[in-house]
Every structure is written in C-alpha cells, then in structure tokens.
Design a protein around this nucleic acid. Structure first.
Length: 482
RNA sequence: GGCGCUAUCGUCUAGGGGACUAGGACGGGGCCCUCUCAAGGCCCAAACACGGGUUCGAAUCCCGUUAGCGCUACCA
C-alpha cells in the first residue's frame, strides 16, 4: 500500500469567532475518518478575510480542539500564507482561457441585481465582459482599470457522488460565472479552498452541507486546474431547539462554553457524534476508542439534527460515572482549586480519600460543577445552612436539637467509625425512640452538610471522619440554640 | 423568486420490501428501591408529513405535493 492510498482530510475553520459546536463536529468526523483509515488529519486556518479574522479566535480553535483531543497532523496551514499560489492559479485559469477579466464594478453589479429583483427575475452575471475584444481588454488593463477574474462556467451538468447524499447534480446553466480573484488580487473562497486542497493533496473533503452549492463550482475549478477530484462528504447542519440554524440566541454554542460549564470532552464528543451519525442499533454511550472502532460513513445522517442540551447533560452524567477515577480526577481538580476548597498539595496528600469522595459525588452529578457544588462540606470548616433544608428538617429547633444530641451520643459511642457500627447505633437509637430512621437521618444530614441532598448518611460520616462529623453536630447545636 | 438538500415519537435515532402490534435513548408521567438526592430497575403516553404509483406485500423503491433548511456577494 502506497502513501497515496491513505486518505488525507482537513478541518478548515475561519478564525472569526470561537470554535462552534458545528465546527467541532465537522472536525470530529474528519478526525474519525482519518484515524479510522490510517490517513492524515490536517488543520487549515482560513484567514483570508483579514477584516474578520483574529488571533484570539485562532487560539480558541486550537484550545477547543486540544480540549476535545482532536489532534492534527503536521503543522497548521494558514491560508493567508498561500496568496502567491492562489494568484498563480488565477493566472493559470486566465492563461488557459478557463477564466476571463471582468471590469464591471460592484456598484454596477449591484444595480443590475436590484433591477433583476424588481422584475422578479433571478440575477445571473450576463458575461458581458467575456465578449470584450482582446484589444479592449488589453487597453483597459493598461489604463489601470480594476478588474476581477471570473471563471467561465462551461455547458453541461456538474455532478458528484457524495459520501452521504450519493448523487448530487447541478445544471451548469444555474451556476453563474463566479469571481475567483478580487480586484485587489486576493482570492475568493472557492479558489483559495480548491487551490489549498490541491496543494495539500486532500482526498476527502468533509464539511457542512451548507457548502453543497459551492461544490459544483469547486469541481469546475479542480478540472480547470487539471487536478484530480477529492471525494466529497456533506454533513448535515446542527440546529437549535427551534429548528433554526444554531446561533448565540440558543445559548452556549462554543465548545469553550461547555468546557467551562464542567463537561467532559469525551461526553461532548460522544454527544456530537450522535448528531448526524449512528453506529446502527441501540448503541449510544461510547468512548472515543469505541467510536473509532464503530465509525463508518454508512452511519452518516442526511437530516439536520437539533442540538438538545438536556441530552448532552445526561450524556455527561453517563461519562462522569463511567470513566475511571484516575481519569476523572484531573478534570475535577482544577475546579476544586478554583473554588478554593483545597490546594493541590492537600489533594495530593489525601489522594485516596479524595478519589473516594469523587466516587461518592459523581453518581449524583451531571457536570463537574455539580461535583464541586456538593464537595464543600467535606473540605471547609464552616458550612452554610440552606434555608430550605433548615425549614424542612429543622422545623422544630427544640426537637431537632434533642434529636441531634441523641444522635451525637450514639455516634460518639459507636465501637468503631465504620459503616456497620454507625448504622447499628443510629438505627438502634431510632428504634429505642420509636421513630423512623429518616426522622433522625434528615436533621443529621442538615447538620453535616447544610443541605437536603447528599450521599447516604453513613458514607458521608465515614468520608468526613469522626472529628469533623462530631464538630459539625456541635456547631449545629449551637446554631439551633441561637 | 431561482437552485439544491431533507422529511420515522417533542428531540437524537434503529429500520435498508414481508421478522413492525415500528425498536432504543433523552425529555415527560407513574411505580419499585430508599435516610434525602441521584443512580439503577420496571411500566405508560408519544412517530413512519400528504397524495399517487411499483409490488402478492411498502416506513423501506419511484413520482408529485407540502413543509423545513441551505445557497443565491469582489464573505467564508
């Protein structure tokens, strides 16, 4: 097998914002395809629109991809650096007669477009400049008149066999002679893309299906430039809950938002993969290696998918519980430190205890933030009492105090600070007082955490340890007395 | 308007002519478990857009209609 048999794919975002979830999914499928078939996955930053491109968003794209683990091969290609080749390709088109110079100004074009619209006709460039005599063209060029380079669309039909849509065909008569080089000699998107994809030997172009109508133009360019055609695969769009194209008003659309919201990259990837792809059957929760194993273009969807944040959260909860504690720990620790619950050194020192805590909390968390929110009482000296918890479980302060005093005594007297003895003590207490166990557990839960929600009472007592637990009860007694 | 793409529960989807009384998952509702909350288990409601064909037989194939989306720049 030669090198040329290996597929080469690329992800080519323009750095005009953050890394969008739609872009991330496109990158993911390109990555999956390349890795699955032993090919290469390249990254190209399409920064030809200098006005809108920023270094900051280029950084955001890198960060997002790195976070997701979508590593690319070779260095990053900056499209802007390829200007000379783009111009050379435009010149080549001119020389071979595949394109011609057009002197129509934007204002004139605009005017004609408006006229056509008022007559309710579709506007299409009328090729008037293609009918200019050779002499006139030379004269106007010599006179320094600005011009663009337009591609002369030939007769016929342009079609291709799309990896996801199968055959797509465009009658060439519906494609106008499009501009490939602006009057300032910079390339238009379609030329830059084709020129770069040829130069990078891209064999599979996988992108959003909003590019379907660009494809016939690009195919025409490949042919005019004498380059072999890549295989095209047009992925369906991702929409917001209202069925419209995903945008800022749908809430978080940047992958960075989800990172900071406390999602696991594996969950994000898993969720994204399922928007527009299915392994077939009922399989849903998958790790990256599993997706790689299962990936196939056959499972690619044609229909636009709606981004459902609820399912994303659920997915994250699944991954939170599924991955190993060793994997989970480094994703949670920065958040714990940021929340000032503990220092890195403290966590290292009590690693076993810390991992056990994570294990206790993750099952009732959907995000990393959920874990951090629940972790406070295990780290901090002082806790806050949630008003709702107080209102519900310390309704009668006198009764609560009495119960807590009894519970403290039972706990302190337990032969060992272990689940069995502790449970025996507390249940024994409940029995001797003729109340349900919950009657004691609930006020105790508030004393220990200040919350109505927590892990099981015995797991918690053990996790907090004897000293802290008893101290918490003493503190609660003081608060109740006040 | 023109051109293109798409069409299974609210959402993500399985399905590729008979196995469909259309399966799974999220979300919703109910029950179980239970010290709270989760997790987990069980159950319920919920869909083949419409109309024509093809066929002994259509969610599956073909054609229309409708609807949604995309593109329609000297943006990418």
């Amino acid at each position: 097998m030669t090198n040329s048999n290996k597929p080469r794919l690329r992800f080519a975002p323009s750095p005009t914002g953050y890394l969008h979830v739609g872009g991330a999914r496109t990158a993911l499928f390109n990555w999956l395809y390349a890795r699955k078939y032993g090919g290469e996955f390249l990254l190209r930053i399409e920064d030809t629109d200098k006005a809108r491109s920023t270094e900051e968003s280029t950084r955001a794209i890198f960060d997002g991809m790195l976070w997701l683990g979508l590593n690319w091969d070779n260095g990053v290609v900056y499209q802007g650096a390829n200007l000379p080749r783009h111009q050379a390709d435009a010149r080549k088109l001119l020389e071979t007669g595949a394109a011609y110079r057009c002197f129509c100004t934007p204002a004139e074009l605009d005017e004609r477009r408006r006229e056509a619209e008022s007559r309710k006709e579709a506007f299409k460039y009328d090729r008037r400049c293609d009918r200019l005599s050779r002499d006139e063209v030379e004269r106007r060029v010599a006179a320094g008149e600005p011009y663009v380079v337009r591609f002369r669309v030939p007769e016929g039909t342009t079609e291709w066999n799309d990896l996801v849509h199968e055959k797509i065909a465009f009658p060439n008569k519906d494609i106008e002679d499009f501009v490939v080089l602006r009057s300032d000699a910079t390339p238009i998107y379609n030329l830059a893309v084709v020129s770069d994809d040829i130069a990078m030997s891209i064999t599979v172009v996988m992108r959003g299906d909003d590019h379907i109508s660009n494809t016939p133009k690009q195919i025409l360019l490949y042919r005019a430039l004498g380059a072999p055609l890549p295989t095209f695969a047009h992925l369906p769009m991702i929409h917001g809950l209202d069925g419209k194209k995903l945008s800022k008003r749908h809430g978080a659309t940047a992958v960075g938002d989800y990172q900071h919201y406390g999602l696991l990259p594996g969950a994000m990837l898993n969720f994204l993969a399922l928007l527009g792809w299915s392994p077939g059957g009922d399989r849903e929760v998958m790790t990256m290696p599993e997706m790689l194993e299962l990936f196939s273009v056959d499972g690619l969807q044609k229909k636009a998918a709606i981004f459902d944040p609820k399912k994303l959260e659920w997915m994250n909860g699944q991954h939170l519980s599924m991955i190993s504690l060793e994997e989970l720990e480094p994703r949670v620790t920065p958040a714990i430190i940021t929340a000032r619950l503990a220092t890195e050194e403290e966590l290292v020192e009590r690693r076993d205890w810390y991992l056990r805590l994570l294990d206790l909390l993750r099952v009732r968390s959907r995000t990393i933030d959920d874990i951090v929110r629940q972790a406070g009482p295990y780290f901090l000296e002082d806790i806050e009492y949630e008003p709702a918890a107080v209102a519900k479980n310390w309704k009668d302060p006198v009764e609560a105090s009495e119960l807590l005093r009894a519970a403290r005594k039972a706990l302190a007297g337990a032969p060992a600070w272990e689940a069995g003895p502790l449970e025996a003590s507390l249940r024994g207490l409940a029995e001797s007082r003729g109340v349900s166990a919950g009657k004691i557990f609930q006020p105790l839960r508030v004393a220990l955490t200040g919350l109505t929600v927590s892990p099981g009472i015995f797991e918690m007592l053990i996790q907090m340890g004897r000293d802290l637990s008893l101290k918490r009860i003493d503190k609660a007694l003081l608060v109740l007395a006040a």
